[in-house]
Amino acid sequence: MNLKKEFRLKHIVLSLLSSALMLSILGLLSHVKTNLHKTVGDIVLSLNMQTATANAVTSVVTFFRGIDTVGEVTVLFLATTGIALMLSSTQRTYKKVVHQESFILDIGSKMLLNVIVLFGVYVIVHGHLSPGGGFQGGVVIATAFLLLFLANPNMKLKHSILTLGESLSGAAYVLIAIISLFKINILLGNFLPHPVSQIGELVSGGIIPIIYIIVGIKVGSEMSVIVEYFVKEDYLKEVPHA
């Protein structure tokens, strides 16, 4: 009944107008050039050898556009803080879930936890050699905690440790940028030795792997916090009155 009331002429006109706009934009898009050469992407690819990093994407993310990554890490931090602001409250109480201990589930999830975390660490540490890196590896680590939550809803994460990882890794990233300013007079420059002959080795690329490890710690701890808040929402006792 409400549907009928809200269906008015202005909605028809608006939807017609917006579809006309979309169609005209689609028409314009046929004029877009797609075969561009000598873009800044091509230049960066040709310069990639200087960073001694086997993975060009990593050198773009952590070096050529390093300050963008500081920004991205900050965006993630703000998102986590925003979720914590919205979902944490003294008024909220959670149901105690009757957890049926299953031996296989318990042991199985704990065994898998180590494997998943190890894989996440591998992805992070090899970020400058193979596809992957801090962001991806951090999310992999967070899935390990998601597994624990699925196996045991009453589990609690140690927030002091997560806050430590979150804060100190973020601060370390900024400190690296500032140390670089004092060492080579450029913010976020590659001030550690990075000889091209070492390309492809685990220790190569100067600060690039260090930055990705820091990003990995930060993303891992933040995604875990987000996972915990969202899992807990399922066991909310009653919605507090605003």
Partner: peptide
């Protein structure tokens, strides 16, 4: 200009959270 976009997002997310900070009906 892409870096401007990143800062645009940082300002944006902060202001969404600040707008909802009171957590009352109007704030949310």
């Amino acid at each position: 200009i892409f870096n401007v976009y990143i800062f645009f997002e940082i300002t944006g997310i902060s202001s969404y959270a600040l707008a909802a900070y009171n957590k009352d009906k109007l704030g949310l």
